[in-house]
């Protein structure tokens, strides 16, 4: 990283504040669509932190995978389950939240103490920064991390097949075409829920 020290400190501060504020927004906001968009802010600021840590390839991969794929997936899921639902009030909910907050703050204090007390064995000599991280990562992937690399591809295939099977909709039977109820042009051709349960129960019998 050939930026000056002051520039690095200032950009780290901006990115850290942005990341903490947006992640608190993800957790605390009541509207889930706002949370999903703030999640993109979290991922973008983490990508900026990666660039500060001399990792250009992983920063690009973070933006491509998280903002481009995972966040869009989450937004699609929110749209698919979009139902204005008023959650029933639970007794002692504030007690639960307060206890969780105390536990989280305690955990952060523990981790922070550990981080600050531990003498990290940083070598004081100027580190030999890798010239091209893409080449270094590729050499790792195809020499000493070859087995995990191949296993990752198998894992992605399994996740894809599993997600398709889990989220698959049953086929619409042709018999309910005649008894179609009033349908506006905006409704999707889905099987109604009570008919689906009736068909399932009849198949079981």
């Amino acid at each position: 990283m050939n930026l000056a020290e002051g520039v690095q400190i200032v950009s780290f501060g901006i990115l850290a504040v942005m990341m903490l504020v947006t992640s608190l927004g993800v957790v605390l906001l009541s509207n889930i669509v706002h949370s999903a968009f703030l999640l993109a802010g979290v991922f973008l600021s983490i990508s900026g932190l990666y660039i500060l840590l001399n990792a250009d390839f992983v920063a690009a991969a973070q933006i491509l995978i998280y903002v481009g794929a995972v966040n869009v997936l989450i937004l699609f899921a929110i749209m698919l389950v979009n139902k204005r639902e008023d959650f029933s009030e639970l007794p002692n909910r504030w007690l639960r939240q307060g206890a969780t907050a105390v536990v989280c703050i305690g955990l952060f204090a523990l981790l922070g103490t550990m981080v600050l007390v531990t003498p990290w064995s940083l070598d004081t000599t100027s580190p030999a920064v890798v010239e091209n991280t893409v080449i270094a990562l590729g050499e790792h992937f195809f020499s000493d991390y070859l087995l995990p690399f191949e296993l990752a591809s198998v894992l992605l295939l399994m996740a894809m097949v599993g997600a398709i099977i889990l989220a698959r909709r049953d086929l619409i039977p042709d018999t309910i075409e005649s008894q179609e109820t009033v349908s506006t042009s905006l409704t999707l051709p889905e099987r109604p829920r009570e008919l689906a349960s009736a068909v399932n129960s009849s198949e079981e019998n």
Partner: peptide, 26 residues
Amino acid sequence: PAEIKGQVFTVFVITVAAAEAAVGLA
């Protein structure tokens, strides 16, 4: 900093996170 093995692990964690998000949302 000489051999960046942490970045390799980060790429694997990103891969597993993407798979987890797909299956979880399904």
